[in-house]
Each structure stands twice: as C-alpha cells, then as structure tokens.
Nucleic acid binder design. Structure first.
Lengths: 224, 224
DNA sequence: ACAAAAGTGTTGACTTTACACCCATGG
DNA sequence: CCATGGGTGTAAAGTCAACACTTTTGT
C-alpha cells in the first residue's frame, strides 16, 4: 500500500452463504474445506470474492453453484461483516446470505480448484472455521430462526411437498422447541402458506399423512 | 483494469447512513450536497468510503461526525447494496445504516471538503439523489418503521425524556398511522421501555404531561 | 368558567393455549 | 387386533380494539 491512497486501497468484497438443510430432525450447514492459503485446511462457509461483473446476489449464487451445482434457490442477505482483520490477505468485507435446501437435491462437489472437501455439518458440531465464519454462521442461525417464521423460505427445503407432521419436526429442529400438534396444524393452515395436494405420504407403520405444497405467492406473514 | 485481475480489482466499500429526525410531526432525513465529482451538485445521504483502519460501524460514525459533529448515537446496519454500476468511478458496495436523532442536538456542518450544503429534508420531499441513494433511503425508511416498533432506537431522539403524547405523535409521524390515545399508552407502558421521572412538561395552555425516559437496558420487544 | 390537551377503565371480539379421543394403516 | 402416528374440537385465558368522561392548567 502507498501513503495517501492506503486508507482506501486494496479492498475487496466476499459473498458468503450459510446453506442449511434439515435431515431427520438435525439442522446442518454446508461447509467447505480449503486447500489454499489463507486458512489452508480449515473449514469455511461457501463463498468467495465478488467479481466486478456481478451483483452481490449473483456472486453468492455463482459461489454456491461452483461448490454444489445448485441454482435457483432463494437466498436472503442478512448482514455485512467488516472487522478490519477478518482476512489476513487484504481488507475484505463480507456480505452474508442464508439459504436452505433439501440436501438430497444436491450433489456436493467435494473437490474443486479451491476445496479439498465439502460436507453437511450439524450446527451443534461446528468446528473452528476460517476467517470470521464462526461468527457469521452463528448470526446466520439466528437469522434462519427468524426467517422460517416470517417467510416461505422453507419452500426450497420441500420442493415436492410436505406433510404437516414433517413440517412441524422441521420447525422444532430449527427453533429447538416443541409445539402442540393440533395448534401447530391450525396455525400453519391459517397462514395460507400451504395448499392441499390431495395426495398422501407412504405408509411408515401408521396412518399416512396428507401432502401439502408451499404456495408460490408470499403473503404477509407474522408467525408462531 | 488488467485481464486476470480485473474481476477482483479496484473494489471499494461505502458506508452510508440515513440519519433521521422528527420535527413537529414531520420525518426528515439529513442530506448532503456534493461539491465534487461524481454526482457534483447532487444531494446524497451522509457517508463515504470506508478506511482500511476502521470497522464498518466506525466508518459510518466517522462520516457522520465529519458531516454533523455528532457522536455516540446508536446506528443500525440494515443492508448492503451492490449493483454493479452503483458508482461510476469504480466498483463500490455500500453498507447502509440508519440512525435517528434530535435535530436540535446537531450543528450541521454545511460546508466541508466534500460538501457544499447539508439539510434536513422531509421524507416526502426527497429530490433525485446521487448514486443509488434514493433506493437506499427508501429501504431505510422501511427499516426505520420496523425498528421503532422493535427496539429502543427512539431513545436517541429524546435524550432528555419524552411525554407519552409526544411519543405517540412521533410514532404516528413515522408510521403514518393514527393510534387510540388510551390503547397507545397502555401498550407503550406495558413494554417497559419507559421509566417515570416524576417530572412534568411545561404548560402549553393545557394540562402538563408526565415526562418519561427511555430505559437503557433493551428488553426483548415485539410491538404495535 | 373556559379552552385545550392529559389521563383513566370497561366491554366485546379475537387470538392463543391447553388438552383427549378416535382414525387409518400394514403387519 | 395391535402398534404407530395422523387427524380433529372445545373451553379458558389472554390480548387487542373500540369507545367517553373527568382532570389539570393558565388566563
């Protein structure tokens, strides 16, 4: 850096996505293992440097696609992180997003130019992460809790439809809290998020549950 | 820009604050008139380029202080703006904040190195602004509406205390909505945001109102 | 005593919570 | 006919919305 310019020069932008899934009542996040410096060998959230020819959201999508192959899921920006020393290389500000997806839809790309591993990790078993990603992830989890009760963000978790008991388990896993079955059903249905498909789930030793789908139109929601 | 590097190079970060005040039932925002390119002669929100030696919030504070002299008010980050062409000079991403303050506490610095004017402008009379500041401001106004019902952000508007009727007028101005006097009082007091000072306002041709103060500790709020 | 705004309580509508029994299914 | 989880209704508690009269003050 040169004097005079040094206050402004050599800055960059990260776009970072905390991509969540829920499997059997366990909330997990996609982590990537770095195979380059800085933070060689550390796990991190998906993301990277923003290009000049893309918007923030486009950058977040590109990074997601490079690491997971997925496209077209809704993501939500929730905060910028700007500690002076958050990157050892140069001054980087991170714009953080969250998303949630059915992990079965994703073929994680385990090896790539910058990664030597990728995995879904339960959020109560998160290792030390590179950069400030532990901090970003912990705020992302809070944001996720807010968003599932204020948006139809869960739609991308259940592209093929969902039964109300399954949905309840998902809410309970994310919010870490139990709900009364009858009241949950009434509440969810009263929100008009779901539409009846007139199909039924498979037998699993009990009465099959009705399958609903998330509607596309997002009405104003204030929930649970 | 050079090939190879060009995707990443010459990026920078803006920190932009929409600083609000409320005067006689009118919500106003502090605007600055630029006296340099780009956007010479245009009005903009307060803000500027982030330095490498300061966090995002420190940058926002520094810019506010340069333009208004104020310090120590709470500000809240609410969104990053990253349209590719939002700055004509180089790739800039803006981190946007809101704050609110009693305008009587501020001596606006009307002339400075980069500004040829500064004024409180009613939010329904906003001119065309430089950069993407019209977009930022319009989202800031929405954020302000959210925040006054979910935080004690109004504390910085009333450092010396507030009567409930005054507070109601402020809510009504910001939310553009009328409330029932009795219900408003009950609701606000039930939130435990305010503490009684046992002082009374001055006579203004009527019964003086009791003065309350915002408490310092922010309890969990979900309001109005 | 008047004008002007402050302060106060109750009722009905609605929303939220708590809770128990019957139902459909495959084995 | 059994085990398992799915589906349903109701009453009590709590919250929100609507509404009118009395109080205090300086002149």
């Amino acid at each position: 850096m040169r004097v005079g310019y040094e206050l402004y020069k050599n800055q960059g932008i990260h776009v970072i996505t905390s991509l969540f899934t829920v499997e059997q009542g366990v909330v997990k996040v996609l982590l990537i293992k770095r195979k380059n410096e800085p933070f060689f060998g550390d796990w991190v959230l998906t993301g990277g440097a923003l290009y000049n020819n893309e918007s923030l959201e486009e950058g977040a999508y590109r990074e997601l696609k490079e690491k997971t192959g997925i496209e077209n899921i809704p993501i939500k920006q929730f905060k910028a992180f700007g500690r002076v020393d958050r990157s050892p290389v140069m001054r980087m500000v991170a714009i953080a997003y969250i998303g949630i997806i059915d992990s079965k839809r994703v073929n994680i790309i385990r090896k790539s130019r910058n990664t030597s591993g990728a995995d879904w990790v339960p959020i109560d078993k998160i290792p030390h992460l590179g950069y400030d990603h532990n901090e970003i992830l912990s705020e992302a989890i809070e944001e996720l809790k807010k968003d599932i009760v204020n948006s139809n963000i869960l739609k991308s978790l259940f592209p093929d439809g969902i039964t109300i008991p399954e949905l309840q388990k998902t809410y309970e896993a994310i919010l870490n809290k139990k709900f009364d079955r009858r009241n949950f059903r009434k509440k969810i249905l009263s929100l008009n998020l779901l539409e009846d498909t007139n199909q039924y789930g498979k037998f699993e030793g009990n009465k099959p549950a009705k399958i609903y789908k998330f509607k596309n139109d997002i009405e104003k929601i204030t929930v649970l």
